[in-house]
Write a protein that binds this DNA or RNA. Structure first.
Length: 190
DNA sequence: TGTATGATCGCCT
DNA sequence: GGCGATCATACAG
């Protein structure tokens, strides 16, 4: 167990890590919030970038667990993943939404909007708010600029699972996890 | 509340 | 040349 990572064992299966990440606070240079939505991806999973093996774009998915994988989506947005399992497994968790906690003003400035609810509601929005770019690819999550903070055990979180968003393959896998009742999800959990 | 569309980059066929 | 783990805007109902 790696305690620098909010007590989460990133060598576990991606769906297990995704579920455990709900409620954990993610900070990048001190800016961020509580993770309320995450999706798991695995090499055996046709919807995953790693499905067809390593490429120049996805190589960090095949690196050590507890590292970041940042990619560009649709030519304009950045998306942040946490690598899981062992090196070579190509498993990861896409961070989809945060409840903003720290650095609200900087996030509003970067996003050019006021609505707190939409600051980090979606993988692309979240990266814009936290200033995550290609420069943050393949970095250890246990070291700056990243910081993970475990949830307060006195306040247990209720986690719901459902189908993932924005994919066309392996649509049936219930590998999207979300904090029950959160206002900060990119879409409501069913 | 929902569906459609354009923006625009890097990889794969 | 096509397409995608997206977002913001525009319009219909």
């Amino acid at each position: 167990m790696i305690t620098d990572l909010a007590g989460i064992d990133f060598s576990a299966d991606a769906f297990e890590v995704a579920r455990q990440l709900i409620g954990v606070t993610l900070l990048v240079h001190g800016v961020g919030g509580r993770i309320v939505e995450a999706e798991a991806y695995d090499m055996s999973d046709a919807a995953a970038h790693s499905f067809n093996g390593p490429t120049p774009r996805n190589f960090s998915m095949f690196g050590p667990p507890g590292y970041s994988y940042v990619y560009r989506s649709h030519g304009l947005h950045w998306c942040l993943n946490f690598v899981c399992r062992e090196p070579g497994h190509g498993a990861g968790v896409l961070i989809r939404a945060l409840e903003p906690v720290a650095g609200l003003e900087l996030m509003r400035e970067r996003r050019g909007m006021e609505d707190e609810r939409l600051l980090c509601a979606g993988p692309g929005r979240l990266c814009q708010a936290l200033g995550v770019t290609r420069a943050h690819n393949n970095l250890p999550l246990a070291a700056p600029p990243f910081r993970l903070v475990a949830p307060d055990r006195a306040l247990p979180v209720e986690v719901l699972a459902g189908p993932r968003i924005g994919i066309s393959k392996a649509v049936e896998l219930p590998w999207r996890f979300g904090l029950a009742g959160s206002r900060f999800l990119s879409k409501p959990m069913r």
